[in-house]
Simulated scan of single mutants.
Amino acid sequence: MDLDRADPKGLVRESYAIEGITLGECRSIFLDWALSLEAGVEVAGAIRALLAQYGAGATEHPMTGVLRAGLTGAEPPRRRGGRAGRFERG
């Protein structure tokens, strides 16, 4: 995938250039990055392109960890709280 489509604002590229950036800051940048993608851009493909370009040489960078986590699926919800969680729907 083209890096201009994968990182249209250059947010991920800039995050790798910030010295001392924290994990929380990288997560915030990742969210902004995800919201800035054009419609139709495959997120997983964009993440793989960014990891290949920036993450390969920076395995310990917090953004590399955030991008890798972005490739894994979210955990399924466990149960609802309160009364609704105690009663099964059927």
Results as ranks from 00 to 15, higher is better:
63 M>S: 07
64 T>K: 12
81 G>W: 03
28 S>D: 15
55 G>T: 00
63 M>K: 07
10 G>R: 05
56 A>T: 14
72 T>E: 15
36 S>N: 12
50 L>P: 04
26 C>L: 09
30 F>I: 00
11 L>R: 13
90 G>W: 05
87 F>P: 01
3 L>A: 04
82 G>W: 14
49 A>S: 13
47 I>V: 14
43 V>W: 02
43 V>N: 02
90 G>L: 13
87 F>C: 04
62 P>I: 12
44 A>F: 07
41 V>R: 01
39 A>E: 15
33 W>N: 06
23 L>C: 05
57 G>P: 01
90 G>D: 14
49 A>R: 06
61 H>N: 06
28 S>M: 14
71 L>E: 13
89 R>A: 10
86 R>P: 01
33 W>Y: 06
68 R>E: 15
36 S>V: 08
66 V>G: 03
40 G>D: 07
63 M>G: 04
32 D>K: 13
13 R>L: 05
75 E>A: 15
31 L>D: 12
83 R>M: 13
45 G>E: 15
57 G>F: 02
74 A>L: 15
45 G>T: 11
38 E>G: 09
9 K>A: 14
66 V>Y: 01
29 I>S: 01
37 L>W: 04
81 G>Y: 08
42 E>T: 11
41 V>E: 09
12 V>I: 15
38 E>M: 05
35 L>G: 11
11 L>N: 09
34 A>Y: 07
18 I>D: 02
65 G>D: 10
14 E>M: 07
32 D>T: 12
77 P>R: 11
56 A>C: 05
82 G>P: 13
17 A>K: 09
9 K>N: 13
20 G>P: 04
11 L>M: 09
81 G>Q: 10
67 L>D: 01
70 G>C: 11
2 D>N: 12
15 S>G: 03
10 G>D: 04
83 R>D: 11
27 R>M: 13
54 Y>F: 12
47 I>D: 00
88 E>W: 06
77 P>S: 11
20 G>C: 03
89 R>S: 12
12 V>R: 00
56 A>L: 08
6 A>L: 00
9 K>W: 06
75 E>T: 11
2 D>F: 07
53 Q>Y: 02
5 R>P: 00
14 E>H: 10
56 A>Q: 14
31 L>F: 10
40 G>C: 06
54 Y>D: 03
48 R>P: 03
51 L>E: 05
83 R>K: 09
81 G>I: 08
44 A>I: 05
33 W>A: 04
34 A>P: 00
54 Y>S: 04
36 S>G: 08
30 F>N: 07
17 A>S: 11
1 M>Q: 02
73 G>K: 14
31 L>I: 12
77 P>T: 12
68 R>T: 11
59 T>L: 15
16 Y>G: 03
58 A>P: 02
79 R>E: 13
44 A>L: 11
50 L>I: 09
29 I>K: 02
